[in-house]
Design a protein around this nucleic acid. Structure first.
Lengths: 214, 214
DNA sequence: CGGAAGCTTGATATAAGTCAAGATCCGTGG
DNA sequence: CCACGGATCTTGACTTATATCAAGCTTCCG
């Protein structure tokens, strides 16, 4: 069981797991640096990522209500995180509900994000889905960047494929196209948004109807 | 503003809306009878349903944390629901946290369901998605049925299409096929599961690999 | 009893997947 | 310091699942 003295930063390396399904958790991690993913694995072996956590986020905020992990949590980059024991959140809840309130607010944001991911996966084309997801991450990254400058976002084309539910090969082709339209740049293991507004347009409307140019 | 005296059943007719995006809510509805859907509409006019509420569910439980409606809530059937004022939940929270705890538990369940919907939409084929969604609803309906007997589930083929993110035409073809395999029966505006275990198999594995028969 | 909502089916089109083959980068061990 | 091997990316050719278009039917509500 963790206590306050444990509330110091812990380090995780890229591709290291922070939790597994059925784990009984005794703390919640607040991400200080690095990116995390939450995913499920299907019978077929395929992976579907259902959430991304960025610095400032409480990872799996619902653990304060039901402390059972249901999915895999993995570090997409080297990560630093501080653990807050559930016990202490619960105790504070009565007297200083600040922390509990913040965590619950995160929970609601997460629900909203999942909802819009459902909409994207259910009803949008490849370009639109990919654009929508990259844009959402861009906006979140911009919100926490000290100067609003977002640098390369540490996502493999395989990671992106597992978020938007398409083939990495197809992700590659879409990215190539978006790169050609000067919307973003692609590095090995990362994507950099160069024109957020164009990206926002594509995420909502796709390419112009009856046209190939943006 | 609602008070306790308002906590009596209200009636809504089929296709009537209970909330709209940006509405500021002052209460949460507990569904007593009937089915509800929560949905988003895209720029293209398409609809994507992101949640279904059944009797016993608290509709939009996250309103107790942020009382702003973000999507449309519509009755899929005639509905009876009782309103609980957020004010009273908040007041009770300190002294009798029972109600708040129940609502938060519902919120966590909802998050889990959305997560598995993301997985279905992202990584499963038409049959698998449709089977998974129908099965989930079947299981929920069975859990609240007094004798475990689930009757026809009130979903239009168009509704199903808007949950699983495929065309109503394609839903029709898949249902025809599942009907042929004796998994379920189809009525106008409703679906009846006749072989839940077969359905469960298809939801997880699809049809047998390298085979057309189940 | 008329019309809208819902269902059904066929023919055709297209977005995305699959298969295949290489190229490139990068961390690690010798 | 270099070499090796795995992870990642890239591109082309071909296949397939699902969408689109079109038409007609049925049921039910007002």
């Amino acid at each position: 069981m963790l206590d306050i003295s444990d509330a110091t930063a812990r380090a995780f390396s890229r591709r290291q797991h922070l939790a597994f399904p059925a784990d009984r958790m005794e703390y919640i991690l607040r991400v200080e640096a690095g990116w995390l993913a939450r995913y499920t694995r299907l019978a077929s072996g395929q992976r579907q990522i259902t959430a991304i956590y960025l610095p400032g986020d409480y990872c799996e905020p619902h653990w304060i209500i039901d402390p059972t992990s249901t999915e895999w949590i993995v570090a997409l980059t080297p990560v630093k995180a501080t653990a807050v024991s559930l016990e202490s959140v619960m105790q504070d809840a009565g007297t200083y509900p600040e922390l509990a309130r913040k965590i619950l607010a995160d929970l609601v944001r997460m629900l909203a994000r999942q909802s819009s991911l459902v909409v994207a996966l259910g009803r949008k084309s490849g370009v639109e889905r990919l654009s929508a997801v990259i844009l959402e991450l861009y906006d979140r990254a911009a919100a926490i960047a000290p100067d609003g400058e977002v640098d390369a976002m540490p996502l493999t084309q395989g990671d992106l494929a597992d978020i938007v539910g398409i083939t990495p090969i197809h992700v590659n082709r879409i990215l190539k196209d978006l790169r050609g339209r000067q919307v973003l740049e692609v590095q090995r293991g990362a994507v950099t948004v160069t024109d957020p507004e164009k990206l926002r347009f594509v995420a909502i409307n796709g390419y112009f109807p009856h046209s190939d140019a943006i």
